[in-house]
Design a protein around this nucleic acid. Structure first.
Lengths: 149, 149
DNA sequence: GAATGATATGATACAACATATCATTTTAAA
DNA sequence: TTTAAAATGATATGTTGTATCATATCATTC
């Protein structure tokens, strides 16, 4: 089974367990993000969906489905670029605590990495010293990937 | 002299030295950001400008002026929120290498901090291990400030 | 100080990203 | 099979940002 198919299957399983439904449309949107292997905007997804599945989905539906997928932690939103990317840990059993994104500014490929806990703690200390309190440690870093360097 | 006035004066000086002009409009936009002491969107600046100076400035002009101020490193754009904030180091003589922003999600106040060099290096190592290359190390962290905790 | 070119700003239109709201369809359960 | 809930569609509009052409202001040279 391909990685993509394994992810879909796992996502389906995950939704069942959480008492929510991975409908066909939701599955297709997730599939689009998995297949494209890069971050896409909602409107890019509208186009991709149209090209891939032959029928068009209104932007409103795409946004709603992206919201759903985010709530289920199957998709992440990249705030710095207003794009969406499938979670790379769908097939992992463990929960991943902290998500850091390396975003290729050239090809929009995204790598989700885990920063050392000690590095995060050091960061957090810097923040507390400044009198602020970290709410969400999602870091998005503007990078170039191996292929685009 | 107030902090704000000192910053304006320094900004003016900086522009002279770089052979560019801090015109009245540019000065007023910078002043708006300095006075408000928080991050504002371009359109919020349009409103602020109108309220503060009695005449309206078209959004296009605000964007152009923000571009100018960014080029001169007098203003930063926060990509995660699509807002703009005055640089907190205008009155420093030294160049500040790496800028990290703590953004209060409640009141939009922003603190510009310097992360330990060692922490940044640790981060960078994590990134290189993942096969990516960091282009711009501007980190924007979703926080709460002292007053909003 | 008038002519000229460069820089700055205004005006208008539109593209890209996102949400509000009401209508319709599909699904699950009684 | 009726009914309520969930999901999706349709339409309008809000928000952020850029393209482009017109006008105004400034600086220099004649």
């Amino acid at each position: 089974m391909s990685n993509v198919q394994a992810s879909i299957k796992q996502a389906d399983q995950h939704c069942r367990e959480h008492g929510v439904r991975l409908t066909d449309k939701r599955k297709q949107v997730l599939l689009s993000l998995l297949q494209s292997e890069k971050a896409m905007s909602a409107y890019e997804l509208v186009d991709y969906y149209k090209a891939e599945f032959g029928e068009s989905m209104p932007p409103m539906s795409v946004y709603r489905i992206l919201d759903f997928l985010q709530e289920e932690h199957l998709v992440h939103k990249l705030n710095s670029t207003n794009k969406y990317v499938s979670c790379s840990h769908i097939t992992c059993d463990h929960d991943h605590e902290i998500t850091q994104f390396l975003i290729c500014g050239e090809c929009q490929s995204v790598k989700e990495i885990n920063i050392n806990k000690s590095t995060i703690e050091a960061l957090q200390n810097n923040i507390e010293e400044a009198g602020f309190h970290l709410v969400s440690p999602q870091l998005e870093m503007n990078c170039l990937c191996e292929n685009c360097i």
